[in-house]
Design a protein around this nucleic acid. Structure first.
Lengths: 308, 308
DNA sequence: ACCCGGCCGAAAGTATCTTTCAGATGTGAC
DNA sequence: GTCACATCTGAAAGATACTTTCGGCCGGGT
């Protein structure tokens, strides 16, 4: 993979439309792939949109102790053609949150927080994660993935660790609407099965880090065999996207010791998975509806009679 | 010879601050004092803020059939230092009136909803579920369950179907902080293991319906053997609570054909599970923190090197 | 008809943004 | 430890967008 160009973000930005309000989320998502100075710029921008909107490139560069070039680079990474456009978006964001509501600041969870606080903070954080995910989800990519799934001959889903459970969840759901789906947690079996895939089949890899080898490998094999591949990841710039026809980005919330990344990434992944499932159900409604009804019926008998 | 300068609106603009949102009104007010071409510009600006915000001076001049100078003059008259600032205000205005439109997110998901609507509705519904769950969670019961878990010799978790994945999630998490936890999805094995439990051990049953026999049975056995039992259920009046020392209630959101109960119950259950985990981590911080750190360390090597 | 005063746009001038390029910095290999 | 390599970073050149100047043009008044 040898690419000549040194700095041409313009084309390889993953079809990112100028985000309207999901900027804070985008900053968090992309922060890990940023360099130190770019992070400083991104932080300033996310922290004080109104203030930054009033600054010129030079001003923002000085404020963050970096150079104009870095500011422009950051703007590019966030999906804008240049700083000018970022600035416009910033002004919009500022106006929005000015007229909107109070941000309802939230602190990290501390070791000595009472139980009630923990509940409130966790709930708030997960709500935030959901909002960020929804705002950052590329509906075009989602639509394309749905279209592939709806007509797939066979669907394989890869995920290990915490993402493994999400993979299982998606697998269970798709099975319920009559699709042939299988979630693999065993990397060896995943690869073994991936070689069976061909054009018309779909492979889905779920990995927060975007660089989980155990998940990338089967996706690569599926990709090489002509299957349509989908990646659900928090790192749209990670290795996994190399072999993905469609990339669905999950959000990355700030984490702390008492709130590991796995927690919010799971929430985010599940929302994406639910979206996939729901949209596929829409598109295959004729067959999906009776299948769903049948699975309800089947479960009803597993409950105790005295259900009140 | 009174005044040399011909065009210096900068100072004689009537102390007008950069108008925030009252732009349309300002245009109307000032229209009479405008020249013909300036009116054309003002009209365009007031009519389509979003569109104009995307244009450069030259663009707007062409659109209105005037010149750059006129555009700048208009901007000055409206109270801005120059076109640049008018443009920023325009972007803000556009964002504001964009967000003003309610997405009508309250409705059920329809078969013909576009993808973007599905995403918005699902996210909103799950946020609602989280809020409901947090509000309805009994912190006393939660605290009691946490206390039992923190000192447990051994922890068994029961869940089948969708709740099975939640059980797995909790099991994985507790293992990570050094507790001896096992999630059972196989009802037979669950019962077989339940007979091993005794006082000082904890058994947790997760069932949305509260009447899943496959989960109630092992909980009953654990209860009879003297273990501390916890039920995570959406039906605090269901059979499962009969054998539960502590009951944690999950919320039940309205469901529809395209949004099965399993979806929101899972969200709700996961929040409860996260609360349990986080609080237990707090209480066992001395041992949990190093264990968590170790598990991170172990995982780091499973990622591709080129992670940036 | 002629003059006068203000409106208007072309083009020059300036600020801002973008790109390039070479030095600085860190990273992995040996 | 030190070398080679890749990457990041900012100074400055280059391009673009914005602002100002200035003279022409089109009315109205005499």
């Amino acid at each position: 993979m040898t690419n000549e160009v040194k700095e041409s973000f313009t084309s390889d930005a993953p079809a990112a439309p100028p985000a309207p309000a999901a900027l804070a989320a985008k900053v968090r998502t992309l922060a890990p792939s940023m360099t130190r100075s770019m992070q400083r710029v991104a932080e300033a921008v996310a922290g004080d949109p109104a203030g930054c909107a009033a600054l010129t490139v030079t001003g923002l560069a000085e404020l963050t102790g970096t150079s104009e070039a870095t500011v422009v680079r950051t703007a590019r990474l966030l999906g804008y053609p240049g700083y000018r456009d970022l600035r416009l978006a910033l002004a919009g964001l500022a106006a929005q949150q000015q007229s909107g509501r109070a941000p309802a600041v939230t602190a990290d969870i501390a070791v000595d927080d009472p139980v009630a606080d923990v509940v409130a903070k966790l709930a708030y954080d997960e709500q935030q994660t959901l909002a960020d995910t929804a705002a950052g989800l590329d509906t075009v990519q989602l639509g394309a993935a749905v279209a592939a799934l709806a007509t797939a001959r066979r669907i394989d889903i890869y995920g290990v660790g915490a993402s493994g459970l999400v993979a299982q969840d998606l697998g269970q759901k798709l099975l319920r609407i009559g699709l042939i789906a299988h979630a693999h947690s065993d990397p060896h079996l995943a690869v073994t099965n991936a070689v069976q895939l061909r054009s018309g089949d779909v492979a889905i890899a779920i990995t927060h880090s975007g660089s989980t080898g155990d998940v990338i490998e089967p996706l690569r094999v599926a990709f090489d065999h002509g299957a349509t591949t989908v990646a659900i990841t928090g790192r749209p710039d990670g290795p996994v996207t190399q072999y993905a026809d469609h990339v669905l980005t999950t959000s990355t919330a700030r984490e702390s010791e008492l709130r590991p990344a796995a927690m919010s990434s799971r929430t985010s992944q599940l929302l994406v998975v639910d979206c996939l499932f729901t949209c596929v159900t829409q598109r295959t409604y004729e067959t999906a509806a009776p299948a769903l009804a049948a699975s309800y019926e089947a479960l009803a008998h597993r409950h105790s009679p005295r259900n009140r």
